[in-house]
Design a protein around this nucleic acid. Sequence first.
DNA 1: AAACCATCCAACCGCAGTGTA
DNA 2: TTACACTGCGGTTGGATGGTT
Length: 281
Amino acid sequence: MRKPEVAAIVATHQVKKMKKGLWSPEEDSKLMQYMLSNGQGCWSDVAKNAGLQRCGKSCRLRWINYLRPDLKRGAFSPQEEDLIIRFHSILGNRWSQIAARLPGRTDNEIKNFWNSTVKKRLKKMSDTSNLVNNSSSSPNASDSSSISSSSLEFKDIIGSFMSLQEQGFINPSNFTNIPTNNNPFTTPHMFSHSFNEDSAPYADGLYGVNIGLHGELYFPPLECEEGDLYKADINNHLEDVNTNGAGSNVPESMRMEEYWDLDQLMNTEVPSVYFNFNQNI
DNA sequence: AAACCATCCAACCGCAGTGTA
DNA sequence: TTACACTGCGGTTGGATGGTT
């Protein structure tokens, strides 16, 4: 929180004092009443016409992040948390895009939630997972229940992938191997996962999610130029805990290395099992 | 009870993109 | 084409709050 202060700016031959810092209930009330009766317009006019000694930017922020009537209050539900993690794995720190897919939540709220809670939790889980992986003497090393503690599982990530495919956003013929619930990727012991600290971007320009012991699922970067194609691959880096570190090579048939039409992907929706979204990315 | 510390989150800042004169 | 204003976004800050010593 910031201490309320007054900043002086020079405008049209007079000094106008712009208030900064926390909003008072009176200011909130003025802005709320103005917005409800006049709707959104030019924000600098809003500040002026609502009788607020605030800059338009400050009014906009207050309205979007706090006063908007459609805002949901309170803690994030587990479903929302899962969605945030999933969308972040695809979109990176594009908080506004993530917020657009979570009705009633703001980008600021999601960003704060991510930085204060999720990031830490994922790191902790990652550490725990690594601890288990590195402990070849652990009697439970092959027991997935001892590893996975989150409701977001590998199958969810694959689910997103499959959903994109089912809706025609990914062309199956572009892949030499499509992940399905029946293929070896989704055997129960692979349901554990961990995330890299920031998920993206990777050095080679791919965005991805480290899905734990068994592989990395890469998504293409979202910055692209029209017509660009980006390579998306799934590489298995097996450290086979079930064979006590004996390891195994990834069969050729399990590797995926093909190209997504990112332009198509960019202009379609990120599907979700929780909501139907009508907005394009 | 007081001091200290860690965490949360509202709000600010700087920058980029867009529209307009 | 340029300059300016406005908007929106992501990163960062720092006061409030709650927990611990």
